[in-house]
């Protein structure tokens, strides 16, 4: 039998012995490849030129941070789910419902901390339902969370009775309206939440398993990772974090309407997508999400400051998101 034995064993492939150099290269590649970061810098430069005193002031920097704080929290929730390769369309309505529930509990006379915890549990509960539908009943995440989006949105109308809830105890407004060392409290909360999510995703076994599941669920399962459990808890945590965003929003606005945080879903998805262009693997990651949030925040604030009509703002926001993603894909294709 003629076999390939006759060839002398070729030497082992000596590829890239220098691991450190390899890492550096991928880091610089990351910066270079990121059309998203270029877009963010570009936007800051453009708005800075158009309105140097208004846009580039320290006050406005704080202002932008305050404006993106809640989006950061909700986009963080979306990031968790998208790391596992799924999607959560219900983060916006979940935030609304949590905020409205917490407000309703406060108005019914419960102590503020208890009401906040109950509100968070509402978010956690919605997340667990999502996780159960997706992980254990194998319903596609889009369908499952579209359904919860609708149901939870309806519950928010019921909780608020269709009106706007207001008159919560003053102490509750500390969450959304106080300042620590000049920084608005929502910013502080957003930073803490982002930091925690970043640590969980990057430095915990749970977070790493989420990445494994998102990268290839079959391989993860065949390697002994409990895919279902991990997906379930990712959705659950996302629900909890969304709820937190909703409660901060309600405190910030001193009022809870039946739809107050719903629009955050689209922006959160956009932010995570923008952020995905920043990672080598193309997966959701918190650092990238923050850049995405930054783009959206700078864009909205800058366009307002320059005085662009809101309808045009909508159109431009979409175009700039596509442009940023395109820019990174061109870069990475050439690399």
């Amino acid at each position: 039998m003629a076999t390939t034995e006759t060839v002398s064993a070729a030497p082992l492939p000596q590829d890239r012995p220098d691991e450190a150099r390899d890492e550096r290269k991928s880091l610089s590649q990351m910066v270079l490849q990121s059309g998203t970061i270029i877009a963010l810098v570009g936007l800051i430069v453009i708005f800075g030129i158009m309105s140097p005193s208004g846009f580039l002031s320290l006050g406005n920097l704080t202002n932008i941070l305050a404006q993106v704080a809640i989006l950061t929290i909700i986009a963080g929730a979306q990031t968790i789910v998208m790391v596992t390769g799924h999607f959560d369309l219900s983060v916006g309505t979940t935030a609304t419902l949590s905020g409205a529930s917490a407000s309703a509990f406060m108005l019914s006379g419960l102590p503020v901390p208890v009401a906040i915890i109950l509100g968070l549990l509402v978010g956690l509960g919605v997340g667990m339902i999502n996780g159960f539908l997706v992980a254990f009943l194998n319903i596609s995440a889009i369908v499952a969370t579209l359904a919860t989006l609708t149901t939870v949105g309806g519950l928010a109308f019921i909780v608020t009775d269709g009106t706007t809830l207001y008159g919560m105890p003053e102490v509750f407004y500390w969450v959304g309206q106080s300042r620590i060392a000049g920084l608005p409290m929502p910013v502080v909360i957003a930073v803490v939440v982002a930091l925690v999510i970043w640590i969980v995703l990057k430095y915990t076994t749970v977070g790493r398993r989420w990445y494994a599941v998102g990268g290839n669920a079959d391989v993860a399962r065949l390697s002994g990772v409990s895919v279902r459990g991990n997906v379930f808890w990712a959705f659950a945590l996302a629900g909890l974090v969304s709820g937190m965003g909703g409660i901060v929003l309600v405190s910030r606005l001193s009022s809870a309407s039946a739809t107050s945080a719903n629009d955050y879903m689209m922006l959160a998805v956009a932010a995570v997508f923008l952020g995905m262009t920043l990672s080598n693997s193309g997966q959701a990651n918190l650092g990238g999400t923050l850049v995405g949030v930054g783009i959206i925040g700078v864009l909205q604030n800058g366009l307002n400051i320059v005085g662009v009509n809101t309808y045009v703002q909508q159109v431009l926001t979409g175009i700039i998101i596509v442009a940023a993603v395109l820019l990174s894909s061109f870069k990475s294709r050439r690399a």
Binding site: Q67, S255, I305
Partner: peptide
């Protein structure tokens, strides 16, 4: 969006006052 208009108006005025 009427449902989120409180936050929208908050941003309109904040940003306008910044500039």
């Amino acid at each position: 969006n009427p449902g989120t208009s409180q936050e929208e108006a908050l941003k309109f005025v904040t940003d306008f006052l910044q500039a």
